[in-house]
């Protein structure tokens, strides 16, 4: 099937089988490998991206279902050299080690905070339990997201 995926404002005209997951299409067909795949069954969250403003698991959606929708991935967060406050906070607070889970956590946290900027600290902890990280023990991810949440509210 011929479809167009609009990723971070750029159109990618691609031909995919209906069974191609959105995660695979973004990575393989559009070459945007910042989105990672860690389980392909919805649990790890490494593939989390934002589609039409909603943070979702891109391994549980077919690429054909995203035809014409606005897709945001980690590659689109920074504005030129200026990092998104969430990226900056992850660096400042050492919210990443191997970096494999990081794009998923960034998109999850940004996706939720854009929808619910005033979410409580407990609510944020619930949200962050959506994704798995094996390196950081979550301590610094939580710190980073709370700090960035403050910055995002200011902006």
């Amino acid at each position: 099937m011929d479809i167009t995926l609009t990723i971070n404002g750029r159109d990618h005209a691609i031909a995919v089988e209906p069974r191609r997951t959105l995660a695979d299409a973004i990575r393989e067909d559009c070459g945007q490998t910042g989105t990672h795949i860690g389980c392909e069954h919805g649990i790890c969250g490494a593939c989390t991206i934002i589609v039409d403003g909603e943070p979702i698991r891109s391994c549980l959606m077919f690429a054909v279902q995203a035809n014409g929708k606005k897709i945001r991935t980690v590659e689109g967060l920074a504005n030129g050299d200026k990092l998104h406050p969430m990226q900056q906070a992850f660096m400042d607070h050492h919210g990443l080690q191997c970096g494999f889970c990081t794009p998923g956590f960034l998109m999850l946290a940004i996706g939720v905070l854009e929808r619910e900027p005033n979410i409580s600290d407990d609510g944020l902890l619930d949200v962050l339990s959506s994704n798995l990280c094996r390196c950081t023990g979550y301590q610094n991810i939580i710190k980073a997201v709370r700090a960035a949440a403050k910055d995002m509210r200011k902006e």
Partner: peptide
């Protein structure tokens, strides 16, 4: 701050599965 982070944080890390 880590020198590793700028690439990883922007999706420019290069992992094995990223290769065609």
């Amino acid at each position: 701050r880590r020198l590793e982070d700028p690439a990883l944080i922007t999706g420019k890390g290069r992992f094995t599965a990223d290769l065609p």
